[in-house]
Simulated scan of single mutants.
Amino acid sequence: LRSPWLAAFEEVNEAYSTQVCSCCGAKPDSSPKGRTDLGIRHWICSECGAEHDRDINAAKNILAAGGHPRLDGGILALQGE
C-alpha cells in the first residue's frame, strides 16, 4: 500500500527555510543567517522559545511549503502570506 504523498513531487523554494521558525513562522533575529552562520547548528527562536536543529527545522519548513499532509496549512511566512 503506497502513501499518496509519496507519489507526488513538488518543487519548492527553500530560501529562508533554515531561518524561519517551523513552530511559529517568525523569522527572528536569533536565527542563523546565510553563509556567515553556517557553523550555527542549533538555535532558539527569540519569538516563541522553540529550540531548533538547523537541518531539521529547514526540513520541516520545506515539507510544509510542499503541502505535506502532516503539516497541513504550512508555514505562512514561507507561503508569502
Rank of each mutant, 00 (worst) to 15 (best):
K27R: 12
K27V: 07
P28F: 02
D29H: 06
D29P: 05
D29M: 04
D29G: 04
S30C: 13
S31I: 04
S31E: 06
P32Q: 03
P32W: 09
P32E: 07
P32M: 01
K33G: 00
K33M: 00
K33C: 07
K33H: 11
K33W: 10
G34W: 07
G34A: 14
G34L: 12
R35C: 01
R35W: 06
R35K: 08
R35Y: 00
R35P: 00
T36L: 08
T36K: 15
T36M: 04
T36H: 12
D37H: 13
D37N: 08
L38I: 09
L38F: 10
L38S: 10
G39P: 02
G39L: 04
G39H: 12
G39E: 11
I40W: 11
I40S: 14
I40Y: 07
R41A: 14
H42S: 15
H42V: 14
W43Y: 07
W43C: 05
W43P: 02
W43H: 02
I44A: 12
I44S: 13
I44M: 13
I44K: 15
C45E: 10
C45V: 07
C45P: 13
S46Q: 14
S46I: 03
S46G: 15
S46P: 10
E47A: 13
E47F: 03
E47P: 02
E47V: 09
C48P: 11
C48W: 06
C48T: 05
C48Q: 14
G49C: 07
G49T: 07
G49K: 08
G49S: 09
A50L: 05
A50F: 12
A50R: 12
E51I: 12
E51T: 15
E51P: 04
H52A: 08
H52Q: 04
H52N: 10
D53M: 10
D53H: 15
R54H: 06
R54Q: 03
D55V: 09
D55Y: 04
D55M: 06
D55K: 06
N57M: 04
N57I: 03
N57L: 00
N57R: 02
A58C: 03
A58Q: 00
A59I: 05
K60W: 01
K60H: 09
N61L: 05
N61A: 06
N61F: 02
I62F: 02
I62V: 15
I62W: 03
I62M: 10
I62Q: 01
L63Y: 03
L63T: 00
L63K: 12
A64W: 03
A64H: 01
A64G: 08
A64R: 06
A64Y: 05
A65E: 11
A65T: 11
A65S: 13
G66H: 04
G66Q: 01
G66N: 07
G66T: 04
G66K: 12
G66S: 08
G67N: 01
G67S: 03
H68K: 01
P69T: 01
R70I: 01
L71P: 00
L71Y: 11
D72T: 11
D72I: 04
